[in-house]
Design a protein around this nucleic acid. Structure first.
Lengths: 129, 129
DNA sequence: TTAAATCTATTACAACTGTAATCAATAGGA
DNA sequence: TCCTATTGATTACAGTTGTAATAGATTTAA
C-alpha cells in the first residue's frame, strides 16, 4: 500500500466515519471542514482508489466508495513509523513532551492510568505469553 | 520554518548528536547507517540550510554545520501535528494502540507511571496555575 | 432524439522530495 | 605558477502532492 498523503487522509477519514458514500456525499462532508473544490476531492478519491486504500462499487450514475484500509491499521502503522522516526522507537518521551508542554489533561491521565492498569492485568499470570 | 522531509531529518539527527560538524563528518556518520551518496547528503545539508533548520560557519576549505532547530522543538511540533492528524488530538488512543499490539514493554510502563506520578505531583497545590 | 447535466477518468502544473551529477571557486602540491 | 583535488552551489530529473480544469461517457430532461 502506497503512502497516504495528508490531503488523502482527510478524505479517508470521512469514509471511516460512514461508508459507503458517494463522491458527492464525501464532497459535502468536506465542504464543511475545508475549502476544497469538488474536483479536488474527486481527485483525492481517485488517488485513494489507485493506492488500494479505497474501493468502489458502481451504483448506476455514481460510485459508492468504501475504505479498504481500516483506521486502526492505519493508525497503528503510522504510530509505529512516527515513534521510530522521531523518538527512536520509544513512546514515553512522546508522552513526556506533552506533559512538559502542559498538553496533558486530567482526562488523558485517567485514560493512561486505565491503560496501564489493564496492561498490568494482562501481564498477571500471563508469562509473557 | 519549512517542513523537514524524512531524508532531511536523518541528516539533522546526526547534527543533534554532535555539532558542529563538517559535511564530511556528516557524510561519514551517515555512511554507516544508510546508502546515501556523498552528493545526496550534501544536497540535504544545503536544503536544511535553506530551510533555516541548520546554520554553518566557514572554516577555510569546509563549512561547519550546526542545527538551528532543536530536537525538542522538532519533536514537540511533530508530535502535536501527528496526534492531531491521526488521533484527533488525543494521546491515550495512541498508547492504547501500542498496548493492543503488544508493543509496550515493562520499561515503557514504568516510564509512563513515573510521568503520571510527576504530573500529579505538579498538579498538587497548583490550582491549574 | 437531441441537448444539457452529471459522473468519472485523464491531464495540468508548480512545489517538494529523493537521489545525484555537473559547475565553479579555491586550496595544495608539483 | 599551473594543475588537480576538494568543497559548496547549481542544475537535473522523475515521482508525489496539492489543487484543479478539461475530456469523455452517460443519464436525464425537453
Amino acid at each position: 500500500m502506497k503512502d497516504i498523503s495528508q490531503a488523502e487522509l482527510e478524505v479517508l477519514k470521512i469514509l471511516w466515519q460512514s461508508a459507503p458514500q458517494t463522491a458527492n456525499q464525501v464532497v459535502d462532508a468536506l465542504a464543511d471542514a475545508s475549502q476544497w473544490h469538488e474536483k479536488t476531492v474527486k481527485t483525492l478519491l481517485n488517488r485513494l482508489v489507485n493506492k488500494g486504500a479505497v474501493s468502489f462499487a458502481k451504483e448506476g450514475r455514481a460510485y459508492l466508495y468504501s475504505p479498504v484500509l481500516q483506521q486502526q491499521d492505519y493508525q497503528h502503522k503510522e504510530s509505529q513509523s512516527f515513534i521510530a522516526r522521531v523518538f527512536e522507537g520509544r513512546i514515553a518521551p512522546l508522552v513526556a513532551g506533552f506533559a512538559a508542554h502542559k498538553n496533558l489533561q486530567a482526562s488523558d491521565i485517567d485514560e493512561l492510568k486505565q491503560l496501564i492498569a489493564s496492561w498490568e492485568q494482562a501481564q498477571t499470570g500471563a508469562t509473557d505469553e
